[in-house]
């Protein structure tokens, strides 16, 4: 284990795994612990029995995939168990009996579309400096997730013609590897520009917008969210595409 990792673990009050570790400790270690893996942190939400079954069946499917190379079997398994692990969150406080609905008032080909994502994207050289610190790396952000959850969201404006090589992303709650490799996985600047060129949509706002989705909900609901809605209206958007991760 590197010195840096050991220091992060110490700062988080997490010790490296020891002999005699329980299954409950093993599960927890993937979610901001000694084995942090944001793609598999969901296993801490499974019961011990379900977690054991997830791992057993994952290995069984891995064995089958060794011979036929069918990766879909593995990704489906992960998606299904991830959904199962999060299903209980139905019980949480953010449920509503009804919600607003605004109809689209013109054909798509005449619409001015905006993009808002919770991916934590920004342009190189224009770091929104969350937690008051510019230059925070993904690795440095992850153990500070609770500070992100208490901080007000900061909106970054990213011109739609920004070259992919100048995009940066940081998000302490999610495995960002896929959209670091190709931003269009979650921040589809290039795909939306293609749709404009093809006449599928009329035009785009000058800039797309992004923030880190782990943020203070009360502040978002009372302050930033309404201000963002006003901003998009002032920019004469006809519709908004939203992408959480």
């Amino acid at each position: 284990m590197s010195k840096a990792v050991a220091e992060v673990l110490q700062a988080m009050g997490e010790s490296p795994p020891e002999e005699g570790e329980t299954l409950a400790e093993f599960k927890r270690s993937f979610a901001y612990g000694s084995r942090t893996d944001l793609l598999f942190k969901f296993i801490k939400n499974l019961s011990d029995r379900d977690a054991a079954e997830f791992i057993r069946s994952l290995l069984e499917k891995l064995g089958e995939t060794l011979d036929d190379g069918n990766l879909e079997r593995l990704t489906e398994h992960v998606v299904e168990w991830n959904a199962r692990a999060y299903a209980h969150e139905w019980e949480d406080r953010w449920r509503y009996e009804a919600g607003p609905f605004a109809p689209l008032t013109k054909p798509l080909a005449e619409c001015r579309l905006g993009l808002l994502t919770a991916t934590g994207h920004y342009v190189e050289g224009d770091d929104p400096a969350p937690l008051g610190e510019a230059g925070l790396t993904q690795e440095e952000a992850i153990p500070r997730i609770l500070e992100f959850a208490r901080a007000e969201p900061i909106l970054s404006a990213i011109p739609f013609d920004t070259p992919p090589g100048r995009l940066r992303a940081r998000h302490p709650g999610i495995d960002i590897r896929a959209y670091v490799e190709d931003p269009n996985v979650a921040f589809p600047l290039e795909r939306l520009r293609e749709f404009v060129a093809e006449g599928v949509i009329g035009e785009l706002l000058p800039a797309a917008y992004s923030f880190v989705g782990i943020t203070a909900q009360t502040s978002l609901l009372k302050k930033e969210g309404p201000a963002w809605a006003e901003l998009f209206r002032d920019e004469r958007a006809d519709a908004m595409l939203l992408v959480p991760v």
Binding site: V79, W94, P100, Q217, P226, P244
Partner: peptide, 26 residues
């Protein structure tokens, strides 16, 4: 929590009269 944040943003933007569409994983 990301999806709660965007769910709230979608509701607020829609309340302001702008239609929204959200893409999320299963």
């Amino acid at each position: 929590m990301c999806h709660v944040s965007v769910g709230h943003a979608a509701r607020l933007i829609e309340e302001a009269g702008l239609p929204t569409v959200t893409v999320m994983t299963r």
